[in-house]
Each structure stands twice: as C-alpha cells, then as structure tokens.
Design a protein around this nucleic acid. Sequence first.
DNA 1: TAGATTGTTAATCGATTAACAATC
DNA 2: TAGATTGTTAATCGATTAACAATC
Lengths: 230, 230
Amino acid sequence: MPGNERATHVTARTPTDAVRDIPEATVARLPVYLRALTALADGGTVSCSSEQLATAAGVNSAKLRKDLSYLGSYGTRGVGYDVEYLRYQIAREIGVTQDWPVVIVGIGNLGHALANFSGFRSRGFRVVALLDADHTLHEQQVAGIVVRPFDDLEQIVRENDVAIGVISVPAFAAQDVADRMVSAGISSILNFAPIVLTVPPGVDVRKVDLSIELQILAYHEQRKAHGEPV
Amino acid sequence: MPGNERATHVTARTPTDAVRDIPEATVARLPVYLRALTALADGGTVSCSSEQLATAAGVNSAKLRKDLSYLGSYGTRGVGYDVEYLRYQIAREIGVTQDWPVVIVGIGNLGHALANFSGFRSRGFRVVALLDADHTLHEQQVAGIVVRPFDDLEQIVRENDVAIGVISVPAFAAQDVADRMVSAGISSILNFAPIVLTVPPGVDVRKVDLSIELQILAYHEQRKAHGEPV
DNA sequence: TAGATTGTTAATCGATTAACAATC
DNA sequence: TAGATTGTTAATCGATTAACAATC
C-alpha cells in the first residue's frame, strides 16, 4: 500500500531473539502465495516452479523467490516446489495453522457481510461473537450467531482468549470501541471505520477503507483522461 | 501496505506531458489528508500547521510536508495552511471535485453494504447501477436503487460514462465480470473478490481482501506471543 | 553429463526522515 | 527584528529486480 503503508508494527526484539525478521512487504504477500498454492493443490498440481506460482499470485518470479528465501529453503533446485509442503510452511509461518478467535463489533450492513464471510473459517479464523450497542439487535441471529450487547466484550475476550477484533461501527464510535478492545486485551484490530485510530504501542491496527481506495482509483482515472493512456 | 504494494499503475507519459508525477505512496495518503482537513473544517478550524494536520492524519509532519510539496506550495511559512484552501487543492488533485459514476456488480451481503455506504456520495462517487446475474434479485430495491440484470452492464456504462466498477461477486465469477467491465469501457476496478484479476495494460485494479488483512494481523500476533512484545 | 530452476548477490529504485535554509 | 513554520535537501532505509552461481 500501497500498500501497505497500511499498518505500523513496532515490535522490539531482544538480541537473543532468534525469530527471523521478515520484511513487511513480504508478510503482506505471503497470504497471496498461500491462496495461490491452495488453488494449485485443489487443481491437482503436486509440484510447481517459482515462475508458475508467481504467475498465479500476480507477481514476478524474482520477487517470489526472494520472499520465500526469508522463510527458508523449501524448494529444490532444478525441480521447483512441492505444492503441499510449501503451502504448509507458509501457513505455519503466517500462523493460520492455529485457531484465531475473532470478535466483530458493529452488526450493520457491513457487519452482516463480515459475519457471513466464508473466508474466515477456512483460514483458521473463528467468529466467537457478534456485538452491537443497539439492543434491538440483541438475540437476533446473524450467520447463525446470536448478536450480544457490546458490554459483554470483556467477558467474551477473557473466556475465548480473543486477540483479534474487527470494528465495523460508524466512525464516531470507532475510537471508543478500539479503546474498549485494547483494555479488554485485544492486540490486533481490523478497522473498517473511516477514521484514524489511536492505540498504544504493541497494538496493531490495519484499516480497510473503501472511500480511500475509490479516491486512489479516481486519481489515476483522472490522469488517464488528460495524459496519454498506456 | 502496505503498501501500497496493492495496485500497479503503468502509465507511460510523453516527454511533453506536463502533469506532475506524484509518488504512489503519496497518492495513497492524499485521501487521508483530505479527510483530516474536512474534520478540521467541520470543527471550525480555519488554519493549521503541518504538525497539527499530520497528527490528525496519523503520519509525521516531515512526511506530510514532503507529500504536499508534490502538489505545489499551498502553505505559508511561519503561518501554516489555510484549511479550506488546502482541502480544495487536494480534492482537485485527487479528482473528487468532479462526479464519478460507479457501478456495483454482485448484490450479496457485501454488495448491500457497499450500496448503502454513505462515503460514496460524499466523496463525489455516484452509484448509477446495481447489477446481479441472479434474476430473483431484479426489480428489488437496495439503498433506493433497483437491482438490474448483469447483461445491462454495457448499456449502463455507455449511457452514464462509467469509468469505475466495483466487483463484489464470489471469486469464481470475478474474472468474467472484470472482462465484461473492461470490454464495456471501464478502466478502474475495485475488487472485493479473493482472486488475482488479470486485466489489460491501462486498466487499474485495486483489491480489498479481508482474509489477507486478517492473516497479516495473525502473523504479527503470533510473533507477539513468542518474541518480546513492545 | 546437460538442462532446469532455486537461492542469493548486488545494483537500482523508491520511500522515509531529519535537518535546515528560506521566508512569512 | 524575533519567532514560527514551510518547502527542500540530502542521508538513510527498505523494496524490487536482474543476473547468476549453486545444485538438483
């Protein structure tokens, strides 16, 4: 973002900490590779070259090999990569081989869509609760899950060991929700509200902002109309 | 985020083309500045320093001033920026002072949420049509707009001069929708389907991918659990 | 062995940041 | 004039890419 210019990750490490440091740009592409490998595996492909995988992921092969080199040497020179083996190694590196309980706060149109989103479950993310401050929504079922009061947040985080929260409330309410999430123990937030959230160090925020994406497209579209198109 | 590692913009320019070239990372932040300026203006602030604006936008002031310098000199040394004037200059640069007709294809849960999204209208984006291949949805109204058959795409694009399309169909249908959009004359696509789209040169695609955002958060969350948190 | 393809190096490119001269 | 703050420079940092030695 760019793209990622999206989130700040200030994570100090002790000198003895042996965890490899993977560049942020690479981290953002690993899920893309994972998806491409899953598609290849589903299509019956057992082995692939960096060129094949790069094409499927929409990047060039030099970048792909450089990215994979941060994880280790999981390929075979002259041969390529075992699809299933590489898929597992990337999944393990990202952390999606484990279960990630998630809460969604704000069950409006977007919250509905998120709750019904099938990509959650298939990637190790499990929606443990849907919360909304509007009591007229409580007891209603969305995607098979009962909507509960926002005030249940702390209890739910504690009981389910929730680390990731999704914010889909209106902009004016988002900072309050973030504050409550952080004090409840959540340390990763996916924010759909069009506002800059302030969080303490150690808490990661990523934002998804429809309006910004459209404006970036508009900027380039405007240029096409004036300058010479490609 | 990153960045904005998200979209590729291959736009060749002739040497005589006087259009300033703004770095992609800067383009991605202009909408954030625009929003911050609108918030300041709404709060009654008439003038602000780069430090103030940077804080509101969640960046540091050096970056902000560098970004603004690509647009021109719209501040006053020793004084700061006129909020309304700078707001207008950025809006003009992005292109949101003009009207952008948009079509949304795929009126499921997400399409519903997008159609109802208030940030569209307020930023110069006007939803001219909601399309879906499922005929049981046709004639239904969503956000006050009647859902029409996907086959009406070409006619709608032609009649409304649509340049921007939003794809919120399932992954398996997304490439077909993109192909139809491109051949109908759309040259900017915002894609919510979890798939890598292939488009001809000159067409911009930006993707919004919930599953990838969550996986990036999971990666960092996993690290916090092992290494030393900040 | 010959052909293929990885993993790594080094060059290039673009983005960020601090510092400060320009100037209100 | 003195203080404040922009716009720009230059250094640094991180990401991308091409090329190729390593090696299957």
